[in-house]
Computed example of a mutant assay.
Amino acid sequence: MKFFYVLIFTFLFTINSQSQQVFSKKEPFAHTYSIVARDTITGEMGVAVQSNWFSVGSLVTWGKAGVGVVATQSFINPSFGPRGLALLENGLTPDLALKTLLQLDESREVRQLAILDVHGDVAAFTGKNCIEAAGHIVGDNFSVQANLMEKNTVWPAMAEAFKNAKGSLAERMMAAMEAAQKEGGDIRGKQSAAILVVKAKSTGNSWEDKVVDLRVEDHKNPIEEMRRLLTIHTAYEFMNQGDLAVETGNNALAKEHYMNAQKLNPDNLEMKYWYAITLANNGEMLEAKNILKELFKKNNKWKVLTPRLVKPGLLTISEKELQEILNL
Rank of each mutant, 00 (worst) to 15 (best):
G43E: 13
E208Q: 10
A193E: 05
N164V: 00
Y273N: 02
D117A: 13
T93H: 03
R228E: 11
V144W: 09
F54L: 13
S74C: 11
L328K: 04
E89M: 12
V246L: 15
V211K: 01
A134Q: 00
E247W: 01
L309W: 10
F142M: 14
K190V: 09
F23V: 08
V22C: 11
D117E: 13
L244C: 06
D121F: 15
K320T: 05
V216G: 09
K166S: 14
K320E: 13
I41W: 09
D218N: 13
M285A: 08
E224G: 14
F23E: 08
V197Q: 03
L292W: 06
A193N: 04
A65E: 08
G57M: 09
M158C: 10
I223K: 06
S318N: 04
K151Q: 07
Q20Y: 15
N240A: 15
A157N: 14
D186I: 11
K163F: 07
I277C: 02
I187S: 11
P94L: 10
N164K: 14
M226T: 08
V144G: 06
V211Q: 03
L230R: 00
E150Q: 11
F125H: 02
A123R: 01
T231Q: 14
L113R: 04
S107C: 05
N299H: 05
P78W: 09
G68A: 09
L148E: 03
R172L: 06
I137M: 09
A65V: 08
E106D: 12
L102S: 01
E27I: 08
S51G: 08
F125G: 00
V211S: 06
L12Y: 07
Q191E: 10
L326F: 11
D121S: 13
